[in-house]
């Protein structure tokens, strides 16, 4: 859940053409990009940020194979072992007739499994709340959050971002993880309320 609070320098860009070189510069300068929030998938940004490829599709393949196996073994077991019936004179092991269900279960397992995995990995669920660095990150701004450590000089980072083309720059102290909450309420974290 809560990943602890950290300090961030946040720069917002309004054009992905400016964002790309900025990302490269920031990385070159050795700053740690916490994340870049964009209103739509900007192709190639993940590479520019040095993120590794997602392997969610591999998970999907595994789920699919699980679905296929489940369907075939279950139907075979029911019709040949558990309760063999003479239905219309068809063979007990009527593989061709099982293709439709096998296929459907393959797709179903893969799709449901992948979506759940996706939600799990990205921490997505109803009532999940995360810190919003800039409300227009889902509208028209590309928001870069740079993580500050004790040694980082905020002002230096801010001016660096300004040079890189950011339109809005500020410093935020924010929760990095997620918590259960509603977006219509300013909620304090449990920890803060209790004054830890």
């Amino acid at each position: 859940m809560a990943g602890g609070q950290k300090k961030f320098v946040v720069g917002s860009f309004d054009d992905e053409a400016v964002l790309f070189p900025a990302v490269k510069k920031v990385r070159k300068a050795g700053y740690k990009i916490h994340d870049v929030y964009t209103p739509f998938p900007v192709h190639g940004l993940d590479h520019a940020m040095g993120l590794r490829e997602t392997s969610i599709h591999t998970a999907g393949f595994i789920y699919a194979v699980t679905g296929t196996t489940t369907a075939v073994t279950f139907m075979s077991w029911v019709f040949t072992k558990d309760w063999p019936l003479n239905i219309g004179g068809k063979p007990h092991f009527a593989l061709p007739a099982w293709i439709p269900i096998t296929f459907e279960l393959t797709v179903l397992f893969a799709a449901v499994g992948m979506v759940l995995t996706f939600c799990y990995l990205c921490n997505l669920a109803p009532f999940v709340k995360k810190h919003i660095f800039h409300p227009r990150a889902t509208d028209d701004l590309f928001v870069m959050a740079i993580e500050c450590t004790d040694k980082t000089n905020d002002a230096e980072v801010q001016s660096f971002l300004e040079n890189a083309g950011a339109k809005e720059i500020n410093v935020q102290v924010a929760e990095t993880g997620w918590w259960i909450g509603r977006y219509d309420r300013e909620q304090k974290l449990y920890k803060e309320e209790k004054g830890y």
Partner: peptide, 17 residues
Amino acid sequence: DNAPCENVCPVAATNHS
């Protein structure tokens, strides 16, 4: 013996003795 009605029942309510 090869009853067409049996094949199509989704719940196996009709089958062959």
